[in-house]
Design a protein around this nucleic acid. Structure first.
Lengths: 346, 346
DNA sequence: TTGTACGCGTTATCAA
DNA sequence: TTGATAACGCGTACAA
């Protein structure tokens, strides 16, 4: 087992100084051809590679970016990571992943672990708990220490940084207008409580669409679910909620749901109640997930272009890292959503 | 914007030496209570945290582990990451993620990027291309340089290291025996070409189950698909292949598929051909994915316990990292798979 | 009780 | 053309 070889070892072996070796390997003109050849050959033989940690310390630059997300077993977030990784790698950066698991404390701990020199900047989507507590001190502290942050998807006005978001409002509005176009008269909304920013915006998009088409807002058509409950492990509860919705208003002929699970479950409940999709009821969800495509009938969705969000976030961050001029200007990039029509709409 | 504070700055500010500060912060008995208090108060005020990079360099230990996977937008792999991250964080490690994207070259590049000091050890699942090329030099080099590797799921005998795998053979055998128990007479197998180790083992499990129950092997019941084709973007092609299978042998009443997509598509094709599931045909897939649970009918699967694999892999790696005694003994941990029965079987 | 010196691996600057 | 030195930030053995 041969340990990793260092400049020092090469220098000793060849009986030259460390700095000569360093220069020779970087092809400095200061060094004679002879020495260069000798050193380079030796280095190649022993597969010398500079130690990244030493370089990071010296350059005060790790070439690593940290991404903190609430959950990784989720298509949206894993696609974002894929996008981040793609751009990061292209530009010579590594990606270190931290999971907050929707917990404020874990978010803080993870950031603390990384903020002490391990990375050059953060890409973050807020945990639900953080959104509820509205405690953003850890972000502001990090930013104050000169470490740039790019937030995506779940963002918040209180934090001054670059942001990448999807046009939740427009996406929702377009989806609902599509349903209206398709002659839906009573469009239900299945959404989350308001503290999750994206849920709120999508709800507003729904309202706006109704307003634009002079449709009355009927409160019995809106189902606000507690996003803290993991309905994935509790499908019965979710089905019951949705069934109540159907029963409280028998004329529902369209559904817009702010996530995949709600939309899918709505389809299942509707089918069980003998509605035909899309003839009796049309459904659109807001998601980048895979379930929609494989559902029967397949579910029309508002696609969020998660991977693109990741790519943009990484590009934004790296641009900031590599532009020394620390102009304190922040931008918010908005990714256009896209309505993907499948069998659940006409 | 206050930059991160260092020992040096604190020392200067308080007019003591750097080492005094260092010792005071670590509560050394060498330092007077007075000085300690003063230093600690100051450090707290300025939120001093030791620089990880400097520590890594000094200790030649990064407390970071690298995980290289073929693909992140995939439930199996993201669950593995979740498991790795869970254990790593508990034990004070960070996780840096590299994606090979099923490419040999990217696998090598990613490992090179990380192997030069950035991490203490690797957790890896081989890319398809690596499995095909059977070129494992980069792993052996890494191991020879004293960096431990733990491989999971897609492993290979040629590499001497710790491994975590699911009992693909047993899992497949049990699944097929379940179908036999449920009175299936003609059980088809939808699998991949043999270079992917897990596909091969699952195929062998199928064969073994038939043999154990004195069933003849009918080659027309076995469909071997090219795993290099991304059927997710090419569902029609997949459906055609499977439809041919059905047509070449009309008596199929059971299907075992080595992944979720194959199983799901088989169900869809069967339904289209007017088979009733599970009455006419029963189906079992091998997967940890979400599609199975939400499919109609829901799909029975052999669960791989991906998160547990990640946890075990991380524990194995960290154990090795923290046991200085470099006994060269490698173990292979086998995770028991579990048959999850849903509506596609009786 | 405090401070000095050294080393982790690298590069840049300056001296020889 | 080559080498010595300092610096990045930290911890520790040893000296004062």
């Amino acid at each position: 087992m041969k340990r990793k070889v260092t400049l020092k070892q090469i220098a000793k072996e060849l009986d030259v100084s460390i700095s000569t070796v360093s220069k020779a390997l970087r092809n400095s003109v200061e060094i004679s051809e002879d020495t260069k050849q000798k050193v380079q050959a030796f280095a190649k033989l022993y597969n010398y590679k500079p130690n990244n940690i030493a370089l990071s310390l010296k350059n005060r630059k790790t070439n690593t970016i940290g991404i903190i997300i609430p959950e990784i077993v989720h298509h949206f977030f894993s696609k974002v990571i894929r996008g981040v990784e793609l751009v990061a790698n292209q530009r010579g950066y590594n990606v270190i992943v931290g999971l907050s698991n929707e917990s404020f404390d874990k978010e803080v701990i993870n950031m603390d672990m990384l903020a002490n020199g391990s990375i050059d900047g953060f890409i973050i989507s807020l945990s639900k708990e953080t959104l509820q507590l509205q405690d953003y001190h850890h972000f502001n502290e990090t930013i104050n220490q000169g470490m740039p942050i790019v937030m995506f998807d779940r963002v918040v006005n209180e934090i001054q940084c670059d942001k990448v978001i999807v046009d939740d409002f427009e996406g929702a509005k377009n989806a609902v207008e599509k349903l209206i176009q398709n002659n839906c008269e009573n469009i239900a909304l299945i959404t989350t409580k308001d503290y999750v920013s994206v849920g709120r915006l999508r709800t507003q998009g729904y309202l706006e669409a109704l307003k634009n088409h002079n449709k009355d807002l009927k409160s019995e058509l809106i189902l606000k679910l507690d996003d803290n409950i993991d309905y994935e492990d509790n499908l019965d509860a979710l089905e019951n909620e949705i069934e109540s919705l159907f029963k409280s208003s028998k004329e529902i002929d369209g559904i817009f749901a702010v996530n995949e699970l709600y939309a899918l479950t709505a389809m299942r409940v509707a089918t069980r109640l003998n509605y035909k999709i899309p003839d009796d009821i049309q459904v659109i969800g807001f998601t980048d997930g895979v379930l929609s495509k494989h559902a029967t009938p397949s579910l029309s969705t508002v696609s969020q272009h998660a991977q693109l969000m990741g790519e943009k976030a990484a590009a934004l961050l790296i641009d900031k890292l590599e532009n020394d001029e620390d102009e304190e200007s922040f931008q918010t990039q908005i990714i256009a959503s896209e309505l993907v029509e499948r069998e659940s709409t006409m």
